[in-house]
Simulated assay, not measured.
Amino acid sequence: MAAVSSPSRRRTEALSRERIVDAAVALLDDAGEGGLTFRALSQALATGPGAIYHHVANKEELLAAATDAVVAGTLADEPDGTPQDKVRALALGLFDAIDAHPWVAGGLTASSWQATSPRIFEKVGRQVRDLGVPHDRWFTVTSVLVQYILGAAAQNAANARILGPDVDRDEFLGAVSTTWEELDTDEYAFTRTVADQMRSHDDREQFLEGIDLVLAGIGTTVRPTGTPVMPASPSRS
Rank of each mutant, 00 (worst) to 15 (best):
N156P: 05
T191S: 12
P134N: 03
D22K: 11
A26F: 02
G93A: 10
V4S: 10
P83F: 06
E61D: 13
K86S: 12
A76P: 11
M230Y: 12
P102K: 05
L62S: 03
A232C: 05
R223D: 06
R119A: 07
S8T: 15
P79Y: 04
T37K: 06
V21Q: 01
D130K: 11
S6T: 15
G35Y: 04
R199Y: 05
A158E: 12
V25K: 09
T221E: 12
Q84P: 00
L131P: 08
L41G: 00
V128L: 09
S143Q: 11
A14C: 01
A44H: 08
A157K: 08
E187A: 12
S112R: 10
M1Y: 08
R17G: 11
G164Q: 05
A51S: 15
L208Y: 08
A216S: 15
R119F: 05
T37G: 09
A100R: 14
W103G: 05
L213K: 14
A232D: 13
L45S: 03
G174L: 01
T109K: 15
V141C: 05
A153P: 02
S8P: 04
R137D: 11
D96V: 04
E13N: 03
L208N: 08
H55F: 00
W138C: 00
T74M: 01
T37P: 06
F95E: 13
E122N: 09
K123W: 03
V229T: 14
D30P: 00
A158G: 09
A14E: 11
A46V: 05
D130W: 07
F172V: 05
T225W: 06
P118W: 00
P83Y: 06
A105N: 07
A160S: 14
H135Q: 09
T142P: 01
E78F: 06
S5H: 10
G132K: 14
A64L: 00
V144S: 05
S235K: 07
R19D: 07
G93K: 06
T109I: 07
N159A: 10
L173R: 14
T225Y: 04
A40I: 01
H101G: 01
D170E: 15
H101E: 04
F95Y: 15
R199P: 02
N156C: 12
S117W: 07
A3K: 15
I20L: 06
A57V: 09
R9S: 12
L163T: 04
L94E: 00
A91D: 06
L28P: 08
I162E: 07
T67S: 08
P102S: 05
I211V: 15
P228A: 11
